[in-house]
Design a protein around this nucleic acid. Structure first.
Lengths: 199, 199, 199, 199
DNA sequence: TAATAAGCGAGACGGTACGTCATGTCTTACA
DNA sequence: TGTAAGACATGACGTACCGTCTCGCTTATTA
């Protein structure tokens, strides 16, 4: 995360130039799209953005932090659409991810994020907080409601149910043994409801 | 994979020295255990193994290839134990993975392998062939038998069922949002049987 | 030549460290004296000088360039001593070279410089500019004066005369078929005056 | 020199294959013509000639030795043409060298030979024996005859005279400060005769 | 005719060095 | 204090050659 997020900021000395900031973000996104995360170096990024390395290090201390920032800056909260049945709501929610990942940038970003997190515990923690947690929370909320309304009927642990749903998604995304597409989400939700649905 | 796997060589030139080979493997395993995959460089590996860089490049063209070889050389086929019920066989099979991953070396190896594969399609393909595929095949076989014997009763696609089971495993392993332990496997199998089991 | 010779830099960024510079020069001179030019590698030089390879490459792009710099930094202009006859002045001038080359360092340096220039046209050009040209100019000046004052009497082209004198010097130096010593210079000047002198 | 030149040769074991020999020579000449001596490596040469490195090392222990062999194999003795005046004979002799060096191959070969000899005393000795010595001997012979016949009149040491003539040639060849061409040889001989000739 | 000896290609091997790239830190002048 | 520029030590990259070696095989001479 950008280090200025410390909220205080009494603003001493020369203020940060937001054009510098933007140039870095833009260049990073371009490199990510064109060559992937492995090709993203602070050195090359500085050159492409026309910015000094110092200015980048001042904002992010690792490639992972920068990557997470890029990722987060693009995510927006899904609109709550009430009045749906559980399977509809679930499919709609999961579909958002699939649709997003049809854009190569997103695919590269999220896969790199997880890859990077394997050897960077700080980043891993952030990923759990910013990416994994909120999604589980959203679906957990849907599930609890569905249990209440009798749409779900299983004695399995709800956390395990979340693991099975999201796990299947990440599994296809990261291991690529089969397509990660709308059809898959549809099948996944159908299969899940077939097993866990009431009736 | 080591490049000598090109089927049958007619044995020309000076043969490979298996001591050299062994020294590399040993040193690589040590570095992996002690410092992790990020600290594994061909340069340092050569120094530690007392071997020239050329001798390493001759065998593996990337760190990922080497890593997969290290991984594969340690895997052994699980003994077939007949006469079990499906949930017992499934739990036993999945438990093998959990037990293995209690050793830090295994955890580092497999997580690095997947991380590396995110930006190396050739490696990704090998991982699917050597790691993902056989495991799915093994459990698929168990499932088919279970369906026949009436232990499983669901109309969900079998591939989706595999995605949910293995997905949950990988998800906990790679995202670490919750413990990846024996308890988890037990809960997972219980939950799965609760939903998909007959009766 | 060191790359900073680009006229006047407006001094941007961190300035070059002259201690780094000095350490390189010193180490290079030592290696040259002790082991000769063939043993001079950028790798070894960096190690000996306690300096990074980058810092060397930043200054010189080839061993030849560095060598010329080492050579030039040691050369000083010969003092003009007026009131001599032409043969005395000539002998004194050429003798300076012989005396210098009695030191092994000089011999190694200049011979390596010419050797290197055989396959490096950029270096060859520099050698002509910095080494060959000034020496010819100095002796050409003496000759013109000698012609004016009647000390030389020959209709041979002055450039050819220079070729014969300097050529004889380089020939003995590079081919080593006979000693390159004070006696030789003395004989050379005597022979030259015997043929080209007036009277 | 090829190591088999030891004259004895009771010929045991499998005899050398002259096609192998020829392939090496041919390839070496090609590389020399196309890319120069600096680009000539035993490794690359073996590949180009379709020959093993061993086969090359068996014949020549260094690039210099090989180069001298290439050079010598192309040289033929100049035909003695009697009945000429000294300046005519001298010019004809020196002109042979100039003409030969108009071919790039020759220029590269001889310049590389001298360059290499600067750091390889064994090669230097061979060059003196095979290249420098015979040429000096030939012209020395001409000079002695010329002195006897009154065509030369100078008290300068004959060795110094040879140094001036050949020195001027090598000087232009190796330092390239001025053209090394027929015009130069003509001027050189003219200048020399102007100074040293009788009358 | 068998033994012996060398030639030969292929290619492994431990080395050394290459020239480049990226890291993260630093130092400077200027804003 | 931010910034661009760039120096710096470090360390790794992947490649090229070096000169030596070890193989299987071939081609000669000698016993």
């Amino acid at each position: 995360m950008a280090r200025t997020d410390k909220t205080e900021a009494p603003a001493r000395g020369r203020p940060r130039n937001h054009r510098t900031h933007g140039a870095i973000i833009t260049a990073a996104n371009e490199i990510l799209s064109e060559q992937g995360f492995a090709a993203l170096s602070f050195e090359g990024l500085a050159a492409r953005a026309g910015v000094s390395k110092t200015s980048i290090y001042r904002r992010w201390s690792s490639k992972g932090e920068l990557l997470l920032d890029l990722y987060m800056s693009e995510v927006s909260e899904p609109p709550e659409v009430p009045g749906r049945s559980f399977p509809e709501a679930l499919e709609e929610y999961l579909m958002l991810t699939v649709v997003r990942l049809e854009t190569p940038w997103w695919s590269v970003a999220i896969r790199s994020l997880v890859a990077e997190a394997q050897s960077d515990e700080a980043l891993a923690k952030l990923v759990r907080q910013k990416v994994v947690g909120p999604r589980r929370a959203a679906v957990r909320k849907l599930m609890i409601q569905a249990f209440k309304q009798g749409e779900l009927a299983t004695s399995a642990d709800i956390e395990v149910l979340l693991d099975m749903l999201f796990g299947a998604m990440w599994y296809r995304l990261l291991l690529s043994h089969a397509p990660f597409d709308r059809r898959f989400v549809s099948d996944l939700v159908d299969g899940f409801m077939d097993m866990a649905g009431a009736g």
